[in-house]
Simulated scan of single mutants.
Amino acid sequence: MSRITARRRHPLARYAVLIFALAIFGVGYTTIAKFSRPAEATLATGQDPVAEGKNLFQAHCSSCHGLSAEGTSTGPTLIGVGAAAVDFQVSSGRMPAANPGAQAPRKPTAPWVTPEKIEALAAYVQSLGGGPTVPEEKWLDASLGSEAKGGELFRANCIQCHNWAGGGGALTQGKYAPALNAPSEKQIYEAMATGPQAMPVFNDSTITPEQKRDIIAYVKGVREQTDPGGFGLGRIGPVTEGLVAWIVGISVLALAAIWITAKKRQKP
């Protein structure tokens, strides 16, 4: 007993205990994480979605983002961006990017992209460091949202870049706010949650899921509006309307002046 007590007082004993505790903790965490994955988290083929997503990532994404998603000079790290960011970027065709530039444009999805593969790729990126997850269906049902409240939120947080009708607009350094007539309800929600490109991140503490649903309802409502008074002119507002009125008005007056003077010259 005295021998054990003497060893316990050895200067290196505390470090040995610390290393032993860390080893036990690491093995325990790995075991729990391995067996706590839900049973439904498998693809229709029975393959682990994380493993399938890793294969897809290494085949289609690693050239820009690195083999372990650590990022490279041409692509940022994806650790911590979450499944929602992957679903948004890949489902909208922005990724994989054909040519690196100031901003990845929306385009048709790649031939290999399917909903199942997007889900697997998102599961792999989610496993690397967490982040925003794909939203639940109840937050995407615009019929449950308030278009009026969504309009107030949109005008307070989004109109500066997307204009009041979601028509988009130019930003600095070659970037731009895209029009909102194409994205799905899920993509609109994911864009708010992840902040793609130059867009800020509106997490749940800034704009709640209920408020995001209200904004989706407003955007969908604006899409369905018509322009019974004439041309919409991009719905940018009085600037374009005044410019068109000025140009058209000046042109009409100039033509009228030319016509009047031409008629006077014809008199004997």
Rank of each mutant, 00 (worst) to 15 (best):
M1G: 08
L12P: 06
L18P: 00
F20L: 11
A21W: 09
A39W: 10
A44N: 06
T45G: 03
A51T: 14
A51D: 13
K54R: 15
S62I: 08
S63K: 12
H65N: 01
G66T: 00
L67K: 08
S68G: 01
T72V: 01
S73H: 05
S73W: 07
T74L: 14
G75L: 02
L78T: 06
D87P: 00
F88P: 04
Q89P: 02
S92G: 15
R94H: 10
A102T: 08
T109H: 02
P111W: 04
V113R: 02
T114D: 01
K117C: 03
D141C: 05
A142C: 05
A142G: 02
A142H: 08
E152G: 12
A156H: 10
N157T: 10
C161E: 04
H162T: 08
T172L: 13
A179T: 15
L180M: 09
A182E: 09
E185M: 06
K186Q: 12
A191H: 01
M192D: 04
T194E: 01
P196D: 01
P200G: 06
P200C: 12
N203I: 06
D204N: 10
S205W: 00
T206V: 13
K212S: 05
T226Y: 02
F231P: 02
G232W: 12
G232Q: 10
R235V: 11
G237Y: 08
W246M: 12
G249F: 07
A256Y: 03
I260S: 12
K267W: 12
P268H: 11
P268I: 08
